[in-house]
Write a protein that binds this DNA or RNA. Structure first.
Lengths: 347, 347
DNA sequence: ATGAAAGCGCTAACAC
DNA sequence: GTGTTAGCGCTTTCAT
């Protein structure tokens, strides 16, 4: 009886069944032109009866695919996962589908994915992390991007000198200022910054601001208070250990991301140090990790839903060739939890 | 000079430039038929010169899309992220692209994604988690799957009664046996199991096996040693607290997943309990969480690379209509870290 | 071995 | 308003 959606029904079948032309079916499908009420409802009835779904591939061939390419460094990293999910939701809301790929820090793979995006005729490419986050842009890569960007708009979360793309990024200086202000207001004067590398633009910006604010608050800069890491848990663990070996151990430490902070927590635990009693710890990103550890981390949040939505908006609008600003910022905000306190009275 | 890949070059352009017919270009592209060495290299030269990439959408219309639909419950969950990443890698190796969607426990959304997969003409659908993991299959949903599965093969990690799909799942009973054997060999006789719900098939299977093994080892079953949870960190935290309130506190606890175990760790910490000195803790999944917490968790691993690869293999082979077994299992293995020890001598 | 031509399912001019 | 028709870019018979 009734609905027996056989193998691949097309608009031709629907048209015949409804006694109209394929064009009319297409019109009701896309709502692109006025169709008489009678024919419209006839078509709609048949469509429902057969549970017909238009072939997106065919539609993609004749017009646009409504697919967005999304490339992250590694979706297993909660930061990327959180943002990617928000992008997916926002895209879905606007009738777009997201094609997700991971670069895994592999340039060749990143290139291959880009080509695939192009082959699939995605309407825009959103890149979160990956090479676009490097401080010094690879000119060769910029060229590559440009070649593709001529056809497909690029929106990135980092920067890429010489590449023709849109950028929506975190205001890292503002984020660092929030963190420093918080720590200083708590009474800290020995503040360390660890876990990242200065070749990464967002880290570089934080580092610059850190140095600057040290001066503003009249705190002295100590070389050993900056410990570079690789953004991983174990990297953060090592950093804190090195910090603990300083002649004058800092009273507060700023982790470049939650991962590093979690590692620092482990180091503290191993050394019998209590956080925040013996040392304050603060970090960036506010991934779910910061709520899962003990103590819960005070950290900077980026409003992921809004961040993702705006990324997708820019992508879609760029795809439609609407004019949009080349560079925009997302404003961070501080989430205060339990990893910071007043410094211990120095002995 | 040279390569100036203008707007959308097609095989016609390549053909003209190489002095052959479009069909010949297609032949070298797909390697589908013999082409004389001379023409082949001419075509290849022009392709390289223009940096030509065939339009995957057009190819998808005329033949197959080489796209796999992958639906997970929530990619932010490290378990799904890990498995999804392995699927992506495996698919890429075989020249397939993965379209990823998240169901977020929203049935309507899950249905919408399925329709989208169908509209995009994915060649097969891999479903990890979602409704296919429920113990009692929603017959209505099974019908829905069947309607789609008539055209597109389904491979799932759970079970779906009455639905025509392939299943590759974890041998949960074997996994639980490893865990119980380990704990018993350490000397534990008061063993709890917490964090999950019995409506979820994989948890139900574990629970059954738990009860069974209690008998095998001559341990008595206690109702209060089973604490249901929701697979989250805070759920696990609550479970352990309830366990600690038992008249006879268990000497070991089995968490249904890493999240729950991490929550239990927090509860233990809050209550001043040391793991594994005061209680042993063991879990399932071996996500990166188990290495990031303190102490690192002893947990069951599923060999994700192999799991993902096999899922993709099944999907692709099913799409090609090759005969494959309806149901297969992945074999778990125990990863011993630092969260288990011998029970404390009872006072 | 190679070219001509039909077709995949849809959209969008273009007529009427 | 609505139908006819010509693509979109590729693959694949079918001839030759």
């Amino acid at each position: 009886m009734a609905s027996a959606d056989e193998q691949d029904i097309t608009i031709y079948d629907i048209a015949r069944e409804a006694g109209v032309s394929p064009a009319t079916v297409s019109r009701v499908l896309t709502n692109s032109a006025r169709v008489s009420q009678g024919k419209r409802s006839a078509v709609e009835r048949i469509i429902r009866e057969y549970n017909f779904k238009p072939n997106a591939v065919a539609r993609g061939l004749s017009t646009s695919t409504r697919i967005l390419g999304l490339m992250t460094a590694d979706i297993r990293n909660p930061y990327y996962a959180t943002l990617a999910v928000e992008c997916e939701k926002a895209a879905n809301e606007q009738g777009y589908t997201v094609l997700l790929c991971n670069a895994f820090n592999d340039n060749a793979l990143e290139d291959a994915h880009l080509e695939k995006f192009y082959a699939q005729r995605v309407e825009a490419i959103i890149q979160i992390g990956c090479r676009v986050d490097d401080l010094s842009s690879d000119p060769c890569y910029a060229g590559h991007i440009n070649r593709i960007a001529r056809t497909i708009p690029f929106v990135i979360t980092g920067k890429m000198d010489g590449a023709d793309c849109y950028s929506l990024r975190i205001d890292d200086s503002a984020a660092m200022k929030m963190v420093m202000d918080h720590l200083v207001s708590l009474g800290h004067r020995e503040i360390a910054f660890f876990g990242g590398g200065k070749r990464v633009k967002s880290t570089y910006d934080k580092w610059q601001q850190y140095i600057y604010l040290l001066g503003v608050h009249g705190l002295s800069f100590r070389d050993e208070y900056i410990q570079e890491g690789d953004y991983t848990e174990s990297g953060g663990c090592d950093c804190l250990k090195r910090l603990l070996a300083c002649p004058r151990v800092p009273s507060a430490a700023i982790a470049v991301n939650d991962y590093s902070a979690v590692g620092a927590l482990r180091a503290a635990h191993e050394r019998g140090l209590s956080i925040p009693q013996d040392m304050s710890l603060i970090s960036f990103d506010n991934t779910y990790l910061s709520e899962v550890v003990f103590p819960k981390l005070t950290t900077v949040d980026y409003n992921y839903p809004e961040y993702g939505r705006e990324l997708v908006n820019m992508a879609i609008r760029a795809a439609r060739k609407e004019p949009i600003p080349r560079l925009q910022f997302v404003t961070p905000r501080l989430v205060i939890r339990n990893s910071c306190g007043a410094p211990k009275r120095q002995p």
